[in-house]
């Protein structure tokens, strides 16, 4: 067979496979057809449940108390929330949790990116190693740290005692004053690679001549960082911070695994409170109300944050 025959046969094969799609693809609605499957899925598994969740927050729904029915209760769940001291405590903890984690992750991520940006021998491997925690599952990350922070067998306790920072082993997760700090440590370990990744991409995008110009003007390293690097990274910092805030507010995973909100309620955050209400007490209505409040607060924060960062840009 000659090559031409191959090409013709090949084309016939494709024609047969794609068939009537070829004509459809020339139509004006082609883009919509391509988009339809993913759009349908997102609507079905995100938007519809979200709207339903909002409706649920105005209803009674307890799976373990069928006798209460699923009637409309208006704003009762929200009124209960205002009188619920655990809600306010969770709100306070959420703020500490999110601010602590974002500040720690941003600082460490930026430091890691600044170091990795120098491209010395061996740093490629380091770049892979630093990113790894972000891709590890919460369950394993949690238990790795639980093992290292164990009150009797924890290697971190041993190290801290050896260098003289601690006098004796400490029960990090049982001590109400240390628990939130310990969980923050785990979260920072888990989340800083995300910042490192995006900061590094941002650093690589800064034109070299900006630094050259700064050198000619006699700028020192710290001045270069302050007047060239940071302003150039401003947008990317703004974007990563808001993404991370959303992630931190919405996912209680690591807290659920490590402390379950305890000891007492020292590490109880809003998302965890809502999840426990739904998963343990099956009080879906009240849990939905907590999530709605969380969502509204998050939206308000995001709106203000975007406004503010736009204003700072100008």
């Amino acid at each position: 067979m000659t090559r031409i025959d191959d090409v013709v046969a090949d084309r016939r094969g494709w024609r047969a496979m794609l068939g009537p799609l070829e004509r459809v693809s020339e139509g004006r609605a082609w883009g919509y057809y391509l988009l339809l499957p993913s759009l349908f899925l997102v609507l079905a598994v995100v938007l519809y449940p979200t709207l339903w969740g909002m409706v649920l927050s105005f209803r009674e729904m307890r799976l373990n108390r069928i006798d209460l029915g699923t009637g409309f209760v208006g704003l009762r769940h929200y009124a209960d929330l205002i009188d619920d001291p655990i809600f306010w405590l969770s709100l306070k903890n959420t703020v500490i949790w999110v601010v602590g984690a974002v500040v720690g992750e941003l600082a460490l991520g930026l430091a890691a990116a600044l170091v990795l940006n120098r491209e010395l021998p061996g740093f490629k491997f380091l770049g892979v190693l630093v990113l790894l925690p972000w891709f590890l599952p919460n369950v394993v990350a949690g238990h790795m740290w639980a093992l290292m922070l164990d009150p009797r067998l924890g290697v971190i306790n041993d190290m801290l005692v050896n260098v003289g920072i601690l006098d004796s082993y400490r029960a990090w997760f049982a001590d109400p004053n240390a628990a939130l700090f310990a969980v923050l440590m785990v979260e920072i370990w888990h989340g800083f690679p995300f910042f490192a990744l995006l900061m590094l991409a941002g650093l690589k995008a800064i034109p070299a001549d900006l630094y050259e110009a700064a050198s000619i003007d006699g700028a020192r390293a710290i001045q270069k960082f302050w007047f060239v690097t940071l302003p150039q990274l401003k947008m990317i910092i703004a974007a990563t911070v808001i993404l991370r805030v959303i992630g931190l507010v919405n996912s209680p995973d690591i807290l659920l695994i490590l402390t379950g909100g305890g000891p007492g309620r020292a590490t109880q955050v809003l998302s965890l409170y809502a999840f426990i209400k739904a998963n343990k007490e099956f009080n879906f209505g009240y849990a939905s109300a907590i999530s709605v409040v969380m969502f509204v607060l998050l939206m308000a924060f995001a709106y203000g944050y975007v406004k503010l960062s736009n204003a700072m840009k100008e």
Binding site: Y48, P49, W52, F275, A278, F284, A287, M294, F295
Partner: peptide, 19 residues
């Protein structure tokens, strides 16, 4: 597609469970 990431997982989980 970007905004749906803002929705709290807990809020989606409950109706998904029922659904």
């Amino acid at each position: 597609y970007l905004v749906v990431r803002m929705f709290p997982a807990v809020m989606i989980i409950i109706p998904l469970f029922i659904l």
